[in-house]
């Protein structure tokens, strides 16, 4: 047991409960998941979110869009080799944001960033063409990856969110970097 594990053992989870709750509330985070992403879990989470959106009376078009963005965000988080992912949904007055975070290889950061920067320059029509080209090109047994991330999922997310994908890289060590990607959905589309 290392020092960190030892210190965790002696701290009560209660000391984290309120700060975590406060953080979620202050940042309008209405949904947060941390753990491995599997198809079974995706189905369960989507069903939960769908019920919640129905309860809040959200417009069906917006609910469907948010739902589809979440499906694709989960695709980006599936990587059993690099451990758990984080998915969070924020509900702001005029928009929803869906962010997925996961580890990628530190050596892949440049490649992923260059791809995202290119995607963010594309017009809706150019994005549609890029998506179709990628769909045509990909091998169903082996989707094309950009730095370990499926290129088609990024293109799809960009299309579905009608806007710029925000991203961040947090260097962890020479092997791993934490990559997070946020798709935004305007409530007024």
């Amino acid at each position: 047991m290392d020092a960190l594990q030892s210190s965790l053992l002696h701290q009560s989870a209660l000391s984290y409960a309120y700060p975590l709750y406060r953080n979620l509330l202050d940042n309008s985070i209405v949904f947060l998941y941390h753990g491995p992403i599997t198809p079974d879990l995706v189905v369960d989470i989507l069903s939960l979110v769908e019920n919640r959106l129905d309860d809040t009376g959200e417009d069906r078009r917006i609910s469907k869009k948010l739902f589809n963005i979440m499906v694709e965000s989960f695709s980006l988080g599936e990587d059993v080799e690099r451990g758990h992912a984080v998915l969070l949904v924020r509900q702001l007055p005029y928009l929803y944001t869906v962010a997925i975070g996961r580890r990628i290889a530190s050596s892949a950061v440049y490649q992923v960033k260059a791809f995202l920067d290119w995607v963010n320059t594309l017009s809706p029509e150019a994005l549609r063409e890029a998506y179709q080209r990628q769909l045509e090109k990909d091998d169903p047994r082996n989707l094309s990856l950009v730095g370990g991330v499926p290129a088609i999922s990024i293109l799809d997310l960009a299309r579905k969110s009608h806007g710029i994908l925000n991203y961040n890289f947090e260097y962890l060590n020479d092997s791993d970097t934490f990559f997070s990607l946020e798709a935004r959905l305007q409530k007024t589309i």
Binding site: L46, S75, P140
Partner: peptide
């Protein structure tokens, strides 16, 4: 109802 991009390729 919905599908992911891996399915869209299939």
């Amino acid at each position: 109802e919905y599908f992911n991009t891996s399915s869209s390729k299939n």
